[in-house]
Write a protein that binds this DNA or RNA. Sequence first.
DNA 1: CGCCAGGTTGAATGATTTCAAATACCGTGG
DNA 2: CCACGGTATTTGAAATCATTCAACCTGGCG
Lengths: 251, 251
Amino acid sequence: MSDIHSNNPLGTRDRGPSISAIPFREKSDGRPLQLLSDRERGQLAQIATLVRFRRGAPLFHEGAPADAIYNIAVGVAKTFRTLPDSTKRVAAFLFPDDLLGLAEEGRYVNSAEAVRPITAYRLPLAALENLLRSDPTLEFHVLCKVCHALRESQRHAFLLGRRRALPKIAMFVQMLNRSEQARGIGAAAIYLPMTRTDIADYIGMSLPAVCRSFAVIERRGLVRFRGKRHLQIIDQAGLDSLAGQNPPRGA
Amino acid sequence: MSDIHSNNPLGTRDRGPSISAIPFREKSDGRPLQLLSDRERGQLAQIATLVRFRRGAPLFHEGAPADAIYNIAVGVAKTFRTLPDSTKRVAAFLFPDDLLGLAEEGRYVNSAEAVRPITAYRLPLAALENLLRSDPTLEFHVLCKVCHALRESQRHAFLLGRRRALPKIAMFVQMLNRSEQARGIGAAAIYLPMTRTDIADYIGMSLPAVCRSFAVIERRGLVRFRGKRHLQIIDQAGLDSLAGQNPPRGA
DNA sequence: CGCCAGGTTGAATGATTTCAAATACCGTGG
DNA sequence: CCACGGTATTTGAAATCATTCAACCTGGCG
């Protein structure tokens, strides 16, 4: 299910855990900044192990004892909760430089699964807590990251509060776009690493509604699909206005 | 709009800012714990000013320069964002022992307003940051509180992801119930400090739908209203099952 | 080459939204 | 103490949109 490496499978990228976020106070032109110094990354690397997960593999389960948090180096994860009727609600998609493993009273709040193959740093909770308590600056950086995650979650809630399908899809596309641009990925096309079902479970719509909404915004000329998992924004302003409005449109 | 006091308007309660949360690792039987020691509260009090807000008064505005965060001592606040068409989405309700004032690049992410008259500690950001960077334990406590807020936001998103009105209302009632029980308020009746419109903007439904849903759960004997703002849970198990299910019910 | 998970499309149903009107409530001033 | 005015809330009826159910398609992989 997961292999443990102590070597250097990431090549030059392997300088230890990496965390980025948009700052709380400081200006950053809307882009996430690397929060950790090389020294901090080294410190974290000393308590971390590098772990891998195949696509679809679980990182941890809701309710299980939380013994570590994870920092994604490569790949994409989702966190989710399962309802009694076995439907799922996706809480977040996690990308490189993100942290996951939120717990309450020592137990994971969500389940997590690899949406794309993952390489991650596993940070045991006890060691991490010791490190944080001894290094206020590092701790401050983690605090910034958690604030970032809180803003993301609120943005997600904002999206979910929309009652119409098109604004939801439009907002979702914009969030992905921002996220990829922030990570410096070519702006040519947005890559959707998750399935349509994942998207449906994230934005609170049925699977058919997701398909139809994508079809509609493509037909309206706002975006263009290149295959099922790549889409290009054609009319940014059109998407903006769709994302920013509640009432039905005239045209 | 707000009065500033340097005296002791809270009487014996005025021992300085107060923050509680359910711990990340430690067991607490589901209840939030006071995170701050008396010494920490004293330290925070030294940089804090006590401010009051009348019902309906704004604490700060989305997009405005964020110079302070607030810690509620008495009262209830809401944070929200306004859409272009002037409808609102409520991000959270804040109660005593909560923090508010989330920012990004130095600007508030949400607006905030007093739902009930508020007495709060105003903590200037610069001074707070200095304090945190010099006191890892205090900083750790703030980190725990932000993790708590993140869990709450995810729970909110989970609620918003439900597609049916009744599960939403049921979950909302349960969240309020838990929140009030946690703060040690008599379990006899739940008090709803916010308007129906606030509730609608929080759970992502129209105002009429909120009224109707309340009417339905009362008619079904799950709860009983004592006036518009007090409700008593009659059938906890019934609410649970309503809150925990997606598909339509047979009976 | 066939299978299967993932994805798309169609049609009918039904819940929620919307629009509208009526009612209850609260604080205030007389 | 009561009348008044405005806000908050409730209820009704029609229209709309997303869900549901179901069939079909598609692409990747063994």
